[in-house]
Amino acid sequence: MPAMATNEATDGELIVRAGDGDRGAFEVLYRRYARPVFGLALRRLGDRGRAEDAVQETFASVWRAARSYKPERGPGGPWLYAVARNAIIDRSRARSEPAVEAPDQESHEAGPADRAETSWTAWRVHRALEELSVNERSVIELAYWGGLSQSEVAEYLGIPLGTVKTRTRAALARMAGLLEGELE
């Protein structure tokens, strides 16, 4: 299978190929999803070492279970999310239980449903980011998480302000298309 065709394949197609033992397809899946899986694991486990292990386990599970994926049941992204979530839950359960139960008290943290929704949102957004070109992703990351204004992004990257604005708008439009299509 030519590399270009593999890179342009949908997640579902790549999972099917991985199920047939196609390592190239598996590696493309890894590049698309390693950061989203790591982000999800970090969010849930709060520890980089355990999150690393969860990523390794997730992709081992993907390789082992890819044959069980049925494209007619839905796109590949949610299937991968479920595999990752299970691997992370397993890793979470492996943590030793606290010796003393914490006293009941009102919690101001988000509940399980809210946390699940936030995790799913982050997963989809981080996955969509992986589809952007390096130029587009740079302007998005600097603007949203680098704390830079558009002028500062232009100065930082050494490109005209107009180019920053064009790339930013193009990146947002591309992400909108990807997120509406649910990254099939």
């Binding site: 950061r35 790591f38 982050a122 989809r124």
Partner: peptide, 10 residues
């Protein structure tokens, strides 16, 4: 959504 998601980890 970008603001809600926060940065992806390296």
């Amino acid at each position: 959504l970008l603001i809600e998601a926060g940065p992806p980890p390296e």
